[in-house]
Write a protein that binds this DNA or RNA. Sequence first.
DNA 1: ATGTATCATGCAATCGATTGCAATTGCAAG
DNA 2: CTTGCAATTGCAATCGATTGCATGATACAT
Lengths: 382, 382
Amino acid sequence: MQVVTLTKLHFAILLHESRIFCCVPEKLAEQAIAKPVIALWGHSQVNDKTRVRNISDLAKIAGVSPGTVSRALSDTGLISQKTRDRIKALAREHDFRPNIMARNLRIQKTGAIGVVIPLGHETGQHISDPFFITMLGLLADALTEKGYDLVLSRVIPTDEDWLNRFVDSGRVDGTIVIGQSDQAAVLDKVASRYRPLVVWGGHSAGQVHCSVGSDNRLGGELAAAHLIKRGCERLAFFGDPNALEFELRLQGCRDAMDAAGLSGEITVFPAHLMAEAAHPDITKFLGSAAERPQGIIAASDVIAMTTLRVLAEFGLSVPDDVKVIGYDGLELTEHTFPRLSTVRQDLTGGANNLVDMLLRRIAGEDTASVILQPELVERNST
Amino acid sequence: MQVVTLTKLHFAILLHESRIFCCVPEKLAEQAIAKPVIALWGHSQVNDKTRVRNISDLAKIAGVSPGTVSRALSDTGLISQKTRDRIKALAREHDFRPNIMARNLRIQKTGAIGVVIPLGHETGQHISDPFFITMLGLLADALTEKGYDLVLSRVIPTDEDWLNRFVDSGRVDGTIVIGQSDQAAVLDKVASRYRPLVVWGGHSAGQVHCSVGSDNRLGGELAAAHLIKRGCERLAFFGDPNALEFELRLQGCRDAMDAAGLSGEITVFPAHLMAEAAHPDITKFLGSAAERPQGIIAASDVIAMTTLRVLAEFGLSVPDDVKVIGYDGLELTEHTFPRLSTVRQDLTGGANNLVDMLLRRIAGEDTASVILQPELVERNST
DNA sequence: ATGTATCATGCAATCGATTGCAATTGCAAG
DNA sequence: CTTGCAATTGCAATCGATTGCATGATACAT
């Protein structure tokens, strides 16, 4: 073992069995380290003086034109098998891979799909929210399967132009928006000129953008009807109706009440979507409510889960004192105590649909919006 | 209202208050729709005959050179305030935004960070796994905050070149790998020549790549020592030690047993990471085990959660008959029944560290690996 | 040997923005 | 009305790969 001290670089490199191990004291790590270290690392490369950095370099080595190299590497275009093999071998030997940005610019495609999450009605919400995250994972799986990369962008719409900026950035071949939030107008405007756009969320009559989502009104109706059947008369809806989907769910609840001939109005409490933010709010609301609701329809599973916890802290029994039902059907509802009844949306099917339809739109087809059937999942909280 | 039927396009467009509403019957939606529809949609644009598609078009309109437009739009370079304002106004008026791919090619930056998830030891695993998903969300939040996009790529390493292909694709400015899986050698090799690379996972002496992760050995020791303190003598470890991090956790368990003077060897069962795959396996294992373990250390929360369910199906009581402890500290452990004891890794801190260090590496600094302290969370399953 | 068909390769324009350097303009002082 | 200087702007090369068209090479038939 040998220790080399490079004072100019302010840190030591220990060479040990041809591996390099950098010890950087905490304070020194704060400082910028000069570039030369890269050159030092070059020793592990095949060839660093004749580094091949583009197709022309390789063409020079191979004694052919850049065009030929391009054709050889891209498995397309007429070219003799012999030169193709020779150039491919050369590329491997020199560890060369064509620059994708240049390729993208030329062929006007990126091989990437954008997933954007607008946080309009709830600025504090994070991508780490269980619903987004679940959806995102499913989309990632579906897109990976089709050979696309996924470009994720969380955006807080401060102006009307956020979506335009994204879709025109040239970074993606198509865009999936998760949730309309309160941006339905923006979505419609962009959809009217930009085809490869699909949206997860609610469907309203006359909308221009192509959406995939469950029948939110029906889902709300299922949830409320279920609670009513279980004997609840005073219902509450926990969720902010400014979001299109939530508004539809609330509408469904009202429809169920009408159908059952209940006269009272449903109490609407615009709970936050994030558990940490919703917890104190719900605590305050339930603590100060004149009449405690007998049944609570939460606009999302996360809200329901939080409600469950608050009720437990109040010493109230679920489902005996209060019944709670969630919405989404996330996996976490399997593991709450008591196990949460919920309205399941087929997220896997939805994600597959979104991807499938987006690819069709990219190919130039047109696609109609899809409305999936929600499904009541009865468990122990109702 | 007026109904126009365009037989050539096979669908009807209803014009209503300047909005276009497409009714596409299910069957017809399957067919490719002719392109002209795009032109029809053009009516909502400001100017479609003089569509500005690049900087030169705008330059022509403004009566200046492309370079000037570039300077005006990019808030950099010398240019008079007057022309800058004029050109910016023109750009807004024509709804023009410069093409990012061309920009990227020219300045050799992308403004995007790659997150790649190698699934080496477990091909069936999906991105929708709660751990990945949680990590991904946190990374997305951290990166968004710094103004970077996130390019997600799930990869099943079939050859040695998967990471090279990704980092050299020119699509990203830096790369975060989540979990070493069984690819530590590949990571080291790439890290030796490609600086902007950081890895979430275990740390082993002599590793070349820069990693962030908790002290897996210590975490394993904490878990095992906790179970031993609770009276367990026969321990089992559920997880595949082929993954570096799991191997370290297992090592910690053995250390704890040694420290407690326990003579028996710990039973290792390489449970799958996915709940659906792990469930039948664990059922089979626990059903056929000669001696049931008294304490189970699961290599992840998901495995622990699945174990909990299997035990409940066997009619065994947790923690009375068997004690179970998880690893990761995901939010879902708050909601299992019984609430799951676990070893919490500070994923938020880890994600922030990963992003921070990656940006420092992009800037040319060097960074040392970070090892975070894991924390024992005692709840009701032990 | 020559014509011709076929296949492989080279040439050069192109995608759209950036930027070093040169040229021009504007403005004020002489 | 010059001259000088600085502030703007234009010019053209550049990033790296793709591709239509033209040219060159080869093989085969006549």
